[in-house]
């Protein structure tokens, strides 16, 4: 009995350590974002005198509102494009057995391992060639590199789980193939679409390398680039309070999304990985 109680205490201590390790940096960012001036440079584990000016300064000193809007637009575009492409691909790869199916799935999945820098030069040319340099649509296009493999995979997996009989029933009921996909299959794989869409949104929202390379002006930047490039009066004096405020602002919606859909995301990650 005593041993079990000790083990129990050990477990809760472990959980405490886990919580501290996971949450402290986030907490610290929030605390720092509420301090300015000298207060920032003394260590307080609780903001004694919360100052909100960092939050207003972020928007005053640079087009941060514009950056947020850019991120929302790029992420939304990416999600829309990825899901549209993945819906078709998922139908083909998940519901039709044709010669070359496995190969095509492998081709799409193989892009998972493409390092972004390996395609940077060619992508740069492509985007410039399409006239999409310093343009949000160009970013969304380039993000397909990493969103397509897992959106296609998740949608394919969900498509496979729809019983063959349901599709057969729809065909017999007189539905043309596009109608079977639109009215029967897509509604049935909606959880998969939501999961894949969430992951794509988060991926696009957080992307940095392409956003850094394919945009030039403040007005076209997304938030990760804006946050990385926030600078102060001099090179050696970074405005940490403002950086933390900006960090909190862009992190809140994404963490809220993750919290609301945590079960979906966790199973999505697991499904994508375990079955792969």
């Amino acid at each position: 009995m005593r041993r079990r109680r000790l083990a129990r205490i050990g477990l809760y201590l472990g959980a405490g350590a886990f919580l501290a390790f996971t949450l402290f940096p986030v907490y610290w960012a929030a605390v720092s974002s509420l301090e300015s001036g000298a207060a920032l440079f003394t260590i307080d584990y609780w903001p004694r005198d919360p100052a909100w000016e960092n939050y207003s300064d972020v928007f005053a000193d640079q087009p941060f509102g514009r950056n947020i809007a850019n991120s929302v637009i790029v992420a939304t575009l990416t999600v829309g494009l990825s899901l549209a492409l993945a819906a078709g691909a998922g139908f083909a790869l998940g519901r039709v057995s044709f010669r070359g199916r496995r190969l095509m799935l492998a081709v799409v999945l193989a892009t998972t391992m493409f390092p972004q820098v390996a395609v940077l030069a060619g992508m740069f040319e492509l985007i410039r060639g399409l006239g999409l340099y310093n343009n949000l649509a160009g970013l969304a296009l380039s993000y397909l590199l990493f969103t397509l493999p897992f959106t296609v995979w998740v949608v394919t997996t969900f498509m496979r789980q729809v019983p063959a009989e349901i599709e057969a029933a729809a065909l017999i009921d007189g539905a043309p193939p596009w109608r079977v996909v639109w009215s029967i299959l897509l509604p049935l794989v909606r959880p998969g679409l939501v999961t894949a869409g969430l992951l794509a949104f988060i991926g696009a929202w957080n992307e940095f390398l392409f956003a850094l390379t394919f945009t030039l002006t403040d007005a076209a930047r997304t938030v990760p680039v804006a946050i990385a490039l926030i600078s102060g009066a001099s090179q050696y004096e970074l405005p940490w309070g403002r950086i933390m405020a900006a960090s909190v602002i862009v992190t809140l919606p994404i963490v809220a999304l993750a919290a609301v859909f945590q079960r979906r995301i966790a199973t999505g990650l697991a499904a994508g990985a375990i079955k792969g």
């Binding site: 065909l171 017999i172 007189g174 043309p176």
Partner: peptide, 20 residues
Amino acid sequence: LPPARRNVAMVFQAYALYPH
């Protein structure tokens, strides 16, 4: 003819109702 144009209906073992 494709199934849609045969005017044949079918009842499946697991019913195959559209769950949504």
